[in-house]
Design a protein around this nucleic acid. Sequence first.
DNA 1: TAGATTGTTAATCGATTAACAATC
DNA 2: TAGATTGTTAATCGATTAACAATC
Lengths: 212, 212
Amino acid sequence: MEEQSGGAGIPKATALRMPAYLRYLKAVSLSGAEYVSSASVAQSMGLSAVAVRKDFAFVSSHGRPRNGFSVRALIEDIEGFLGYRRRTNVVVVGAGKLGRAILSYEGFERYGLNVVAAFDVSPAQIGAAGGKPIYPMARLPEVCKRASVQTGILTVPREAAQRVAEEMTAAGIRAILSFSPAYLKLPKGVLVKYEDLAVSLATLCSGLSLSE
Amino acid sequence: MEEQSGGAGIPKATALRMPAYLRYLKAVSLSGAEYVSSASVAQSMGLSAVAVRKDFAFVSSHGRPRNGFSVRALIEDIEGFLGYRRRTNVVVVGAGKLGRAILSYEGFERYGLNVVAAFDVSPAQIGAAGGKPIYPMARLPEVCKRASVQTGILTVPREAAQRVAEEMTAAGIRAILSFSPAYLKLPKGVLVKYEDLAVSLATLCSGLSLSE
DNA sequence: TAGATTGTTAATCGATTAACAATC
DNA sequence: TAGATTGTTAATCGATTAACAATC
């Protein structure tokens, strides 16, 4: 019993590299090239050519000896694998500066992501931004239910994070992308991914001091 | 020849878990507990107890049989390992909504990060935000030189990303945290970390569909 | 056909887990 | 002392690399 539906059986490490391949391949596509070899991808991305071929083989079968891989086909295959074809509704909770910046962000669509609305406790923030409505927190359960929202972006201050995250799970949200540095203690089954800008930046900086 | 200065020899996987440990331990500390066992950390964070002990052993020696680990000491040791004691100057390039939100973010300090200034091509954006100055792009090299800035946060639109990233490296920046989805082709030795909100969110969503 | 490049099988490497000894 | 918990050594597992066969 190894196989599951939807492309499981793919090594975790391979799956995690897919977004980076996609980003690179789109740049190649833009530059006009129709084919890439595993060697050139490897070179540009700092990987080994064998690793690249093996990774590609998991999601695509458009590699041909002598020619390499069709860039277009590869992009389609990876997007399919990553599920960027499915449409997913999400909400933003916290309509401060960061929350509003996210509301105005135009890049979600091409990943099948649709921001339905934002929510905030403060009446001063109610209204709209980036063409998306900002509702009071009280409406969160109703909106999530109606739009079948299971995913939320959390952009409230540290002190409010735990309480608000609990409200989100109560509203039926099962996955949270949190920009708050606070550790969230939530029921098992709720997925939390921390997007801590300071941590990312600090990690990058220490990478710098290591590399010399 | 395995040893290097500054705690090298630590497995990569271990190092990558450190920020998550820190986040969790700070929450424990706030709750008032003085000691934690590897078992309780493992339970809360979804790891195995042996893994936790081994990880902690790489950066700390404050574990004691019967008592567990001193939360305070552990936090200090991990912060030391991660280099949050060093002070590092950074700049923000692109003063749109996201750039300004980052300028106003107060969480960088505790990681030893100091945002010196932001830069933008558009004269309309020049001024200040979050108490930090916003300068025209032309001043980037000068400011980076004076403040010894090696790290930059890139928050310009996709079309401008490559050009601006080149300006940044020309100004002496050696590590870039990019919020643009564009692939950046830069000289070897320049570290790029992509912080693609849409990708993070999409990955989280597909994690959701996998977990059931 | 010859040459370039993919795809696969076997070997190596690193990380995790299991078993258990050390210690407060 | 007995019991709980750490720290370490050996075994397993997964991911990467090396070698080479398959194929356009």
